[in-house]
Amino acid sequence: MALAVQRLRYLGRRALQAVPIILAIVVCNFVLLNLAPGDAASVLAGEAGSATPEYMAELRQRFGLDQPFHVQLFHYLRNMLAFDLGYSFRHSRPVLDLVLDRLGPTLLLMGTAAVVAIVVGVLLGVLAALNLNGWRDTLISIFALVSYATPLFWIGLMMIVVFSIQLDLLPTSGMESVAAFYEGWERVVDIARHLVLPATTLSLFYLALYTRLMRASMLEQAGMDYVVTARAKGLTERRIVVRHILRNALLPIVTMAGVQVAGMLGGSVIVESVFGWPGLGLLAFESLFARDLNLLLGIFFLSSCLVVAVNLLVDLLYALLDPRIEVR
């Protein structure tokens, strides 16, 4: 009971600490993004192909770009504190709607990729460590090296060429079949089929990292005194690996995954653009080039919230894996 209260109090304190951090991030982003030359009005007019000066002036006035910089910042922060992320004039929609639209597909893709990468990476790492310098170890190490070194976009395109065009097994791109518009379970299956290639492509890179990290971590733990003790106690090799070595070897993976999953949630521009996946990364990329600052700031705000949340989760997970680590 006392432990639960302590954890809750810890959570509350960390959440409070996050507020000034996120605010600082927002201000930094706002200042940095405003340093970029050109503005949303000129991009919109540029896309239109032509515009009169009155039209340009009107656009700037409507976007609030005619205001001095500190007034713009003040307005933005004031809206922010009221949980209003603002309006994207480019899309004629509130920023929150646009971001939430993309959040589901992003979490689906990134979540799947992260789970696959961590589970398979850990498994391969354990296998390699148990078969040190054997053929399995060599094979796994080569696989990890190749996956890590190959550019993502190339893997993606090759996946499309092989599995989609040559073998005709999976769709090339998108999140669902647009000619069919499936409903119910058929739709779930359809989305799952569309998910295979992008999730595999994205997980390959991270998978390689976790494999190598897990292998090294397993080998390090295997040489520890407590393993010798366990062996002297007469425990089976299987029990030693699963209960003792593995559990301790997981800690660095959790640290690494915490950092990366938080980053992944911001989206992956490359995988999203190759597979036409409607994620946050591509939206951020497009809004940067369109100087749609309200939208971009909204995405950054959401990403920074996610990073803070995932970090907190990782800290709690430490305590679960290793009871010696306390949360206070």
Partner: peptide, 20 residues
């Protein structure tokens, strides 16, 4: 009519080739 948006030129070619 469905208007699709695919950011990558290579993928657009592949989708055209596959008849999607």
């Amino acid at each position: 009519i469905v208007a699709r948006f695919i950011a990558d030129p290579g993928t657009r070619t592949a989708a055209m080739e596959k008849g999607e």
